[in-house]
Write a protein that binds this DNA or RNA. Structure first.
Length: 635
DNA sequence: AATTAGGCTAAT
DNA sequence: ATTAGCCTAATT
């Protein structure tokens, strides 16, 4: 092959070699740097599906040849399954080449690939927030929006892969300003997650704003008159959240809502509750609708089923294997004396109340939201602090057995069936149907209950994703009935709060970790944390750079004082010697502020004031289309 | 109206 | 570390 100049596609997907936008099926993605290439313009094309999966662009493959860079891993975890899955797609005669390409891409990216027309429609529409990001947060290597952004000590932002490729070529200076990048920074660079979050939120808001036609006004409004945070009443007289009352609920789902909480139920952020989202405590978790009861571990009603559970280590019989776990029912404890800490069981659990609710969800195959709390000290999957949403699980079996404390407990086998990857894996895809674990304890189970009918939440082999296979059970909660005028009015309010929040919620994520204000002159540490320049420097004001050491009267060579990042245990002493402002981030913040300001002004002009448009709660009609005939449960 | 709940903080 | 003593809110 003649060594012709080979070029990848640009940020608009146009091949830099032939200047044509290749069809999806004609695009190849480099496994190392994730750039896209036009197959027809490559001098050497992959032949088999395995080669497609493992394909490296000419830049990256030449890199190995030139210098033996230590490569993390040739095959990602679970790549064997992936290749098998791709073989299966290839062998499927019912699919067109286009469909095959789409399925392949879905597997590789974990996301649905848009139709080309759909893609165009999206591009021409919606928020310019993403444009702002595109304008300020482009990687100067690949010219794309930053992917896994990292920031050099000199304040320049690159994709992690592009940065690694650069230093892997033996470069020791910043590609933008030629400032020296110390080798410990190059090897220990950390992702700037504030920037990741900003980009993710902007993408999510764009995606949902373009789904304009299907935008639905959900009129569930509870606790709207309450403050934004949990609070203690005068009577409670305690600090913190010991005796707290719930703050307002931000999402528009009713409390008996089954399944994921999607963007359309999230008028503030328009992203829904994402897998991996964390909250400080049960009150905050409640405010985002992931789990409503603020003490109970099970959210559910015996006649309808259970919507969510929290694993917090309260029952010693539990066992957690991440993608599946065994949950213990509630009850069996003597809670007399108003104590909430008794872990002593004093009577048998039975399938009543919330235990029955879990059983209903098992029989129906409903999706159950699962949260893990830091209080679970036993499980390696539990978060270190706060409470985390881990996605949708199904209860595949339930039974009763003699518990470890000598009384009967209800037991539930939960198995994950979620389209998003779990917070603990590095996989970029969600779950696929898996075989149930073989459980020893089932042999001593008193009664084993398994689902007979088809599950409500199941796996769609065609679309390769989990979804409702039957419509979700309608809510029994009171719904406000609103007329068309009011619909129009509340639509405006939601749209308005949405528009404000896109830029403002992005700004909220760009606050200094020291002063809590949106950063004026942001600096990014090599460990990936952002502060105001003045705040960070102020923290170490008065701490000398060098420390005199003495031992037994004689003085030793003076040593550098450790200066620990205010957000993590990294020593950022070297970084502090010459702190550079992250100017791209500063530009972004300024643009977002401007955008938010403009939005506010334009809304003032249209004469809408927030106080007049407030959605008051009105006593309402019960929308009773719910069947109360869930008569298939026995004691 | 009573009961129950896998939380939270401060005091041992 | 452990736990008494609170308060809130949903289900029954």
């Amino acid at each position: 092959m003649a060594p012709v100049t080979q070029l990848p596609c640009d940020c608009n997907g146009i091949c830099r070699a032939c200047k044509v936008k290749p069809a999806e099926a004609k695009k190849l993605t480099c496994k190392t740097c994730a750039t896209q290439w036009h197959v027809d313009c490559l001098s050497c094309r992959p032949e088999t599906m395995e080669e497609v999966v493992e394909w490296e662009c000419p830049d990256c493959s030449s890199l190995h040849r030139d210098l033996p860079v230590a490569h993390e891993k040739t095959l990602p975890e679970g790549a064997g399954d992936l290749i098998a899955a791709i073989r299966a797609i290839e062998a499927d005669g019912s699919l067109s080449d286009m469909e095959k390409a789409k399925k392949r891409q879905w597997l590789l990216s974990g996301k649905a690939v848009l139709e080309e027309g759909e893609e165009k429609r999206r591009e021409g529409d919606g928020s310019n927030i993403l444009d702002i990001l595109n304008g300020t947060l482009k990687c100067s290597f690949c010219l794309e929006l930053l992917e896994r952004p990292v920031t050099t000590p000199c304040g320049h932002n690159f994709c992690l892969k592009c940065f690694k490729k650069w230093v892997g070529q033996g470069k020791k200076t910043c590609a933008k300003c030629r400032a020296v990048i110390p080798s410990d920074v190059a090897s220990g660079i950390r992702i700037n997650s504030a920037v990741v979050n900003a980009i993710r939120a902007a993408k999510a808001s764009k995606a949902s704003s373009t789904a304009g036609e299907t935008w639905r006004v959900y009129q569930f409004v509870h606790n709207q008159d309450r403050p934004d945070r949990a609070y203690t009443t005068e009577r409670a007289k305690r600090k913190g959240k010991a005796n707290a009352a719930s703050g307002r609920i931000f999402v528009t789902v009713p409390q008996d809502h089954f399944g994921p909480i999607t963007a359309e139920n999230d008028p503030l952020r328009n992203q829904g509750v994402l897998v991996g989202e964390c909250w400080a405590d049960r009150f905050e978790c409640r405010q985002w609708g992931a789990h409503f009861p603020h003490i109970s571990g099970i959210a559910g009603q015996s006649k309808r089923g259970a919507q969510s559970v929290v694993l917090s280590g309260g029952y010693i019989d539990d066992e957690d294997h991440g993608e599946w776990f065994i949950y213990t029912g509630s009850g069996g404890r003597d809670l007399k004396g108003n104590k909430r800490t008794s872990k002593e069981q004093s009577f048998d659990q039975t399938f009543v109340k919330s235990n029955l609710a879990l059983k209903v969800s098992c029989l129906k195959g409903y999706p159950v939201r699962v949260l893990r709390s830091h209080k679970d000290k036993h499980s390696p999957y539990a978060p270190r602090e706060g409470i985390r949403y881990d996605g949708i699980y199904r209860i595949e079996k339930c039974w009763a057995k003699q518990g470890m404390q000598g009384f009967k407990v209800c037991r539930y086998l939960f198995v994950r069936c979620e389209n998003e990857p779990a917070p603990w894996t590095s996989d970029d895809h969600g779950d696929r149907p898996r075989r149930l674990p073989e459980l020893q304890e089932l042999e001593e189970a008193v009664t084993v209950i398994e689902r007979q009918e088809d599950p409500s939440w199941g796996y769609d082999e065609q679309d390769t994703c989990w979804r409702w296979m039957k419509p979700p059970p309608p809510s029994n909660w009171r719904v406000r009935r609103i007329d068309s005028e009011e619909t129009e009015r509340s639509w405006k309010i939601i749209k308005k709060s949405k528009n404000i929040s896109i830029s403002e919620s992005l700004l909220r994520g760009l606050k200094c970790l020291i002063c809590g204000q949106v950063m004026a002159s942001p600096v990014t540490t090599p460990c990936g944390h952002n502060f105001c320049k003045t705040c960070l420097e102020g923290t170490f004001a008065g701490v000398p750079f060098l420390r005199e050491r003495t031992r037994g009267g004689r003085s030793l060579r003076s040593q550098k004082n450790a200066r620990i990042c205010p957000a993590c245990p990294t020593n950022i002493s070297d970084f502090l010697q010459n702190v550079q402002i992250n100017r791209e981030l500063m530009t972004l913040i300024n643009s977002l502020k401007e955008e938010a300001e403009q939005k506010r002004n334009s809304e003032d002009l249209t004469g809408e004031n927030s106080s007049g448009d407030k959605m008051e709660e009105v006593e309402t009609v019960v929308e009773e289309d719910g069947e109360d005939t869930d008569s298939d449960e026995e004691e």
